[in-house]
């Protein structure tokens, strides 16, 4: 069996099916929804960081821009929710295009510039002068589209597409070329790879994913403020989850979200007073002892992890 098919049958399909039926058997709908959103964002980080090496500290900028793209479509154009979600994806891509010059930076410079860019978008959206368009700092309250069940299903569909994209990257010559660029861009050019084009495509794909996720999030919650959808926690969580599991794999970010976001909710509910402490120690331990993520426990033993 070709490995792309194996990955689709044994990773993508079970994940999507389980998430699609869970709302029927588990009551906490919002928690499930957040899981799906973080799965999407962690895989989005995987696409850009795992396959090209750019760490998107301002990843939430695409998410927030997508949320506002959705809100503007609904508020001003009375667009149906699904169309507004697509528009959110387009907004993600447009912001990605606008930020392509950042790809000339490397390492920490890229991460910081990306963070600054996300703050700039936040302050633009929250600017009182734009109240007539974005409602500025006063937040949006969407009427007419509220439908958590449909929004949840849309999120699962976007997750399926995102994981499919990562399966493609793991199994295609395009994905291999991206990894070559990440390893050594000069050598990649000497292998005949168009380095700039590859980076831009991966960047736009991950921007699209976050834009769609932001749009669906806006659909789901319907009432939100700029600070909610541009919260740095989205970037940090998505990055930490992806790194915890292990990037440049299909399963790493999934495992990372399930374990870390699971623990987050568990200790958040049961012992909130120790939450920050336990969480902080866990992440420090990971960075110190497993810098390549949980999956490296297996790869170190010579096992292949998809």
């Amino acid at each position: 069996m070709p490995s792309a098919l194996k990955h689709t049958l044994f990773i993508l399909a079970p994940l999507v099916i389980v998430l699609a039926v869970l709302p029927g058997v588990y009551q906490n709908h919002l928690l499930l929804f957040n899981f799906v959103i973080f799965l999407v964002l962690a895989q989005g980080v995987n696409i850009i960081y795992g396959f090209t090496g750019y760490l998107p500290f301002g990843y939430v900028g695409f998410f927030g821009a997508g949320a506002y793209g959705f809100a503007i479509m609904v508020m001003h154009l009375q667009a149906p929710a699904l169309l507004a979600v697509l528009a959110a994806g387009v907004v993600g891509i447009l912001l990605g295009l606008l930020l392509t010059p950042l790809l000339r930076l490397s390492g920490a410079y890229f991460a910081i510039a990306n963070l600054a860019a996300s703050l700039a978008v936040l302050h633009l959206v929250a600017n009182p002068a734009l109240e007539s368009i974005t409602k500025g700092p006063y937040g949006v309250s969407l009427t007419g589209t509220f439908n958590p069940n449909s929004a949840y299903m849309a999120a699962v569909v976007v997750l399926a597409l995102t994981v499919a994209a990562v399966v493609y990257l793991k199994n295609s010559s395009f994905g291999l070329a991206l990894q070559a660029v990440r390893e050594d861009s000069v050598s990649a050019a000497m292998a005949g790879v168009n380095v700039v084009k590859m980076r831009v495509l991966a960047w736009l794909a991950s921007a699209l994913v976050a834009g769609l996720a932001g749009g669906i999030y806006a659909w789901y919650v319907s009432v939100f403020y700029p600070d909610n959808v541009f919260s740095g926690e989205f970037s940090i969580f998505a990055i930490v989850f992806a790194l915890f599991g292990g990037v440049a794999t299909i399963t790493g970010p999934i495992v990372g979200v399930i374990i870390l976001y699971g623990i987050y909710n568990l200790i958040g509910f049961t012992t909130p007073q120790y939450f920050q402490l336990i969480y902080g120690l866990l992440i420090m331990g990971l960075v110190l002892f497993l810098p390549a993520g949980l999956v490296s426990l297996a790869t170190r033993r010579g096992w292949h992890v998809p």
Binding site: L176, A177, Q179, D184, S187, A188, M190, G192
Partner: peptide, 24 residues
């Protein structure tokens, strides 16, 4: 390259595959 520059974390086979699929 005077100091060789392979794609370090890719396998030897993958190193060659990239060039094979993107070359002349």
């Amino acid at each position: 390259f005077q100091v060789p520059k392979p794609f370090m974390s890719l396998t030897v086979r993958e190193n060659v595959q990239v060039a094979l699929s993107h070359g002349r």
